[in-house]
């Protein structure tokens, strides 16, 4: 992706949930932009493909054990990046609950299922912000959250996923105001992209995927690296120096009424 070349040259970023899907694609895009990319994953062996993508794109991959539900792990990941590379310019929080693609039976489920979603998407959103703050303050960096169109329109099938993704949008607006005086920018991207769950669905329920694609004016689901990656890089780069508190919907036109 030549358009990204040099945009994040020498900058250090941490991407959570970077082992697959949007996290993997966004990591590769930061690699194309010349960044040192901390690939945050629960199991380091699951990050090798992402690391290869980042390196092939021209970036420097750094695999980090980073289960965002574990405060010590996320703190250690940030500390290691800063210790090894001297700075932290952006955190991209993309990790979601392993149950995020499951349907939620709202009327019959329990708080335990809610906590599965909230721990990764709400608690870790706050905790990563607190842990990254002193470093982002030094670099006047950026905090980017991967939200979702479901967090805007509310999904019948996924009420918990919708709620926690909405929480991130409220978080972004408020924190952008709180951190504005520090020149730290806080934004979110609401992507509609191929995920491992959708790849599975393509095989098991191809008609359902076709129906979803039919709802997208551009006629296809987004590619994590080439469609979701560039806007994410842009929002963390100096090119977006005057953009904060925003949600950028990257959905091929599927969602237009923000």
């Amino acid at each position: 992706m030549s358009g990204l070349q040099g945009l994040m040259e020498g900058r250090v970023v941490l991407v959570t949930g970077a082992g697959a899907g949007v996290g993997r694609g966004v990591s590769a895009a930061f690699g194309s932009a010349g960044a040192i990319v901390g690939i945050g994953v629960r199991r380091p062996e699951a990050a090798e493909e992402t690391a290869a993508d980042v390196a092939a794109a021209g970036g420097t991959p750094v695999i980090l054990r980073c289960d965002v539900t574990d405060a010590e792990q996320s703190a250690a990941a940030i500390t290691q990046l800063v210790s090894d590379y001297g700075r932290l310019d952006a955190v991209i929080h993309n990790a979601v609950s392993g149950r995020s693609s499951e349907a939620t039976d709202f009327e019959n489920t329990t708080l335990e299922e809610w906590e599965d979603h909230a721990t990764v998407t709400v608690r870790a959103t706050w905790r990563l912000a607190v842990q990254a703050y002193p470093h982002l303050q030094k670099t006047q960096g950026a905090y980017l959250l991967m939200s979702s169109p479901a967090g805007i329109e509310g999904s019948e099938r996924a009420p918990f996923y919708s709620a926690v993704k909405a929480a991130q949008r409220g978080f972004v607006r408020a924190l952008a105001r709180e951190w504005g005086p520090d020149h730290i920018r806080v934004n979110s991207v609401a992507p509609l992209a191929i995920s491992p769950a959708l790849e599975n669905m393509k095989i098991l329920e191809p008609e359902r995927v076709k129906r979803i694609e039919g709802l997208v004016p551009l006629g296809r689901l987004g590619d994590p690296e080439t469609d979701i990656g560039p806007p994410s890089v842009f929002l963390c780069s100096d090119e977006a120096r005057y953009v904060t508190g925003q949600t950028l919907v990257v959905s091929g036109g599927r969602f237009t009424s923000l």
Partner: peptide
């Protein structure tokens, strides 16, 4: 702000259900 936005969109999801 995080809580309010979450609750507002939870309400939308429930409205659909």
């Amino acid at each position: 702000c995080s809580a309010v936005e979450a609750i507002r969109v939870m309400a939308k999801a429930v409205a659909r259900r």
